[in-house]
Design a protein around this nucleic acid. Sequence first.
DNA 1: TAGATTGTTAATCGATTAACAATC
DNA 2: TAGATTGTTAATCGATTAACAATC
Lengths: 208, 208
Amino acid sequence: MEKSPVSAAVIRRLPRYLRYLGELLLRDVERISSQELSRLMGLTASQVRQDFNCFGGYGQQGYGYNVAFLHREIASILGIEEQQDAILVGAGNLGRALINHISFERRGFHLVDIYDRDPKLVGSSLHGHTVHHIDLLEEHCARHLPSIAILTVPRLAAGEVVTRLVACGVKGFWNFSSLDIRLPDVTVENVRLGDSLMTLRYRMKQRD
Amino acid sequence: MEKSPVSAAVIRRLPRYLRYLGELLLRDVERISSQELSRLMGLTASQVRQDFNCFGGYGQQGYGYNVAFLHREIASILGIEEQQDAILVGAGNLGRALINHISFERRGFHLVDIYDRDPKLVGSSLHGHTVHHIDLLEEHCARHLPSIAILTVPRLAAGEVVTRLVACGVKGFWNFSSLDIRLPDVTVENVRLGDSLMTLRYRMKQRD
DNA sequence: TAGATTGTTAATCGATTAACAATC
DNA sequence: TAGATTGTTAATCGATTAACAATC
């Protein structure tokens, strides 16, 4: 329970550090300086050192950082060893793609159930899981409380689903709907694909 | 060709403003003050006014902002009326989900072609488009140059694909692969789904 | 006109970069 | 030891918030 007021900007860079360090590890690189790593990643060496020092001194003067050690530490900071149970709500195109595409286990999550309200999808199998009807949610959660929900339902359905999930005790949302979730004691990570595409549109226009 | 040095932070908020204004429009709200809009969106009134004033004075003292006008202006700033041609490269789970899930037309893009290298996918139909073999890319682009590519290929394939696309003249990438694209004269919007999930993991850990 | 609310300047806050002493 | 490179403090830069005069 470390009271770490580490800024969101730093946290958002951690997975990227983890990825680069993982690659160095595969290439049997043993040590790396903030200088080299920054060049590799397109950051400044100063930023790399500041970022790592938010969590403690992982390097050694005159040597740099031990790749394997740093990789382990960042993985641990992100908390990906302690698996948490997750459910997917919304087994449409996007939900199905996420389940097949993202490695949840590698990122600290264990998928336990999939829900949808479409009778055509209920009962079908998806990545080794049976799609359940959303009305079984409360019953299932009473037995086996998932801590996060991946929300890939249409916007109009999202409000009700969120209320029910929060009532069940879900504490985190990976939210792909355009509904803004603002609730106390709930952590939300919004993925706004449409917004992302529109900013690309703008930035390209600026170049012309 | 307005030399607007508007910060990325502002640009990233524009699609969200657009969304909220669109909703107000549907509810026949005619005018809104920065105060009201900020409360609705969870921002400060100051920020709302600063954001809009990056582009010019869209409001009126004592009145607020005209919803319809502001909506139109933001749409125009984002450039979503001038359609640009886009191609999808990688017709796997994620690519197929995006095509079916995202409204490209509403966001200033017109999907012209879909490519993959998997013979099992080539020739199949997807959202009204035939999936072409990636080797037809150069030939097709010579006739009909797309300005952006939606990149949903595996990481290992991404490097080669990017090189070919840039050679063809593609100027923008909506990049879902974990490959970092750093090239001159190319605009890249990275969507790192795995990273997003990991930051959710971290932030939930902080609450316990 | 009086009240409301913008546009805009100034103050604050936070994040990034630079610099350098500490130290491996 | 000398050289390299961190950890950390200070300087800079940028973004957000506050304040208020301008004005509808």
